[in-house]
Amino acid sequence: MSQKGGRPLNGEDKKILIIGLGQIGYSNAEYMKKLGLRVDGYDIMEKAVQRALAAGVIQNQATNFKNYDYYIICISTHNPDNMFVPYLDGLFEVARKLSEEGTPGALVGIDSTITKGTSRKVMEILKHRLHVVHVPHRFYINEIEEHGVRQMRVVGGCEPCCVNEAVHFYHDMLEIPLHSVNPVEIAELTKVVENSHRYMEIAFAEELKMVCDNINIDFDELRKAINTKWNTKILEAKEGIGGHCLPKDSQMFLDFSKNAVQHSLLEAAKMIDYRYRAHIGRSPEISPYATVNKGNNDRDKVALYLPFEVISSLKKEFNIGEVEMQSLVAALINKIIKDHPHEM
C-alpha cells in the first residue's frame, strides 16, 4: 500500500458518506466505488437512496452521520418549488446535523454550488471541529471519460489545515487534479461565474438567432461561417436556457453583485432569454426579480415575479439603475407584507 505522510493513499480503511444522491452525489459515489472505496449514501428522498443501492454505487443507506472520515455534500441548492431561486437552508441543516453527529477532525467537502460566504458559515456551525472545503463539482454526463468526476477541479478551504485534508482526499485518494485557491471565496465564486458566463454565451446565440430571423438570414449558415475563426465559437440557439444549474447559478451571481455594479450584462442576458422564448413560441420562464425575507430562513422569502419587459420599461420611465430598481421593488414587497400580513 502506497503511503504519503504516513497515511495510506488508497483509503480502503476509510469510510465515506455522500450526502445527497442526485446527479452530483450519484456520479461521485459511482466513481469512488470503482476505485474500491467504502461509500455509504444519505438522502432525504428514499427513491434516490434505493436507486443508488440497486445500482451498487453505495454499500449502505446511512441513518445518521456518525463514524465517517469524509463527508461529501452534494445536495441541490435551488428552491424545491422554483429552480430559478437559490436555496441554502438544506445545506445549513446538513451542517447542523454534522455539528451534532459528525466525526471530529473529519473532512467536509462541499461539492454543491454555493454562493460567497457559505463555506465560512458552515465552518461557524461546525465550530471548526471538522475541516471544511469547497470543491465545486464539474461533470458533463455526455462526455464522462473527459469531463466526468475525474477532471481538473478548484479547491478552497476555510483554513490551511482544511486544504491539506482536501488534497489528501481529492487528489491523493481520488486521483482528481486540483487547482488550489485562497481564500475559499474564490472557489465559491468559480462555479457561479462559470455558469453565469455560459448563460451569457447562450443568450448571445439566442439574440443572434432572433436578429437573423428578423432580417431573413440563415442563422446556422452564419454561425458556421463565424466559427471558422480560431478564437470564436458561437453556440447553438435551442429552446431557451433551462436546467438545474444555469438559471439558479446566474441568479446567485446577480444576488451578490447587485450592490457592486449598477448595470449588469447578465441581467440583459436574462431579458434576451425571456424574449427568445416568446420568439420561438415557448412560455417565458420568469425568475423572481426581488425577494424579501419575512422570517429566519429561505422558505420565508416573499418573491415578486416581473417580466423583464416590465423591468426595462420601469427603469426607463423613472430613469433609475438596477440597484435603485431592486430597492424600489423590495420596498413594495415590504409594504404588501405590512398591509396584508395574513395573506402572505
Rank of each mutant, 00 (worst) to 15 (best):
R7E: 14
G11L: 10
E12N: 12
K14F: 09
K15E: 15
L17M: 02
Q23T: 13
N28S: 12
A29E: 07
E30H: 14
E30P: 05
E30G: 06
Y31H: 11
M32L: 13
M32K: 00
L35N: 03
G36E: 07
G36H: 05
L37C: 11
G41S: 04
G41H: 02
Q61D: 10
N64S: 14
N64C: 14
D69Y: 03
I75F: 07
S76F: 10
T77L: 08
D81M: 13
M83T: 13
P86N: 03
P86G: 00
Y87K: 07
L98E: 01
S99F: 12
S99N: 15
G105F: 06
A106G: 13
R120S: 15
K121G: 03
L126S: 03
R129D: 12
P136W: 04
F139L: 09
Y140N: 13
Y140R: 15
I141W: 12
I141V: 14
I144A: 10
E145N: 12
V149A: 05
E159G: 04
P160R: 05
N164Y: 12
V167W: 07
H168D: 15
L174N: 01
H179L: 11
H179Q: 13
S180N: 12
V181A: 01
N182Y: 11
N182I: 12
P183W: 05
V184F: 02
V193K: 00
E194Q: 07
N195K: 02
S196P: 00
F204E: 11
D213Y: 06
N214S: 14
N214H: 12
I215K: 04
I217H: 07
D218F: 09
F219T: 02
D220F: 10
D220E: 15
L222P: 03
A225P: 08
I226H: 08
T228D: 06
G242W: 05
H244R: 12
C245D: 01
D249M: 03
S250K: 01
M252I: 15
L254G: 02
K258L: 09
S264I: 00
L266E: 00
A269I: 02
K270G: 02
R275I: 12
Y276W: 04
R277T: 04
R277Y: 04
G281K: 07
G281L: 07
R282E: 11
E285G: 10
R299I: 09
A303F: 08
Y305N: 01
L306C: 06
E309W: 09
I311G: 06
K315S: 05
I320N: 04
V329E: 01
I333W: 02
I337S: 08
K338C: 09
D339L: 12
H340Y: 15
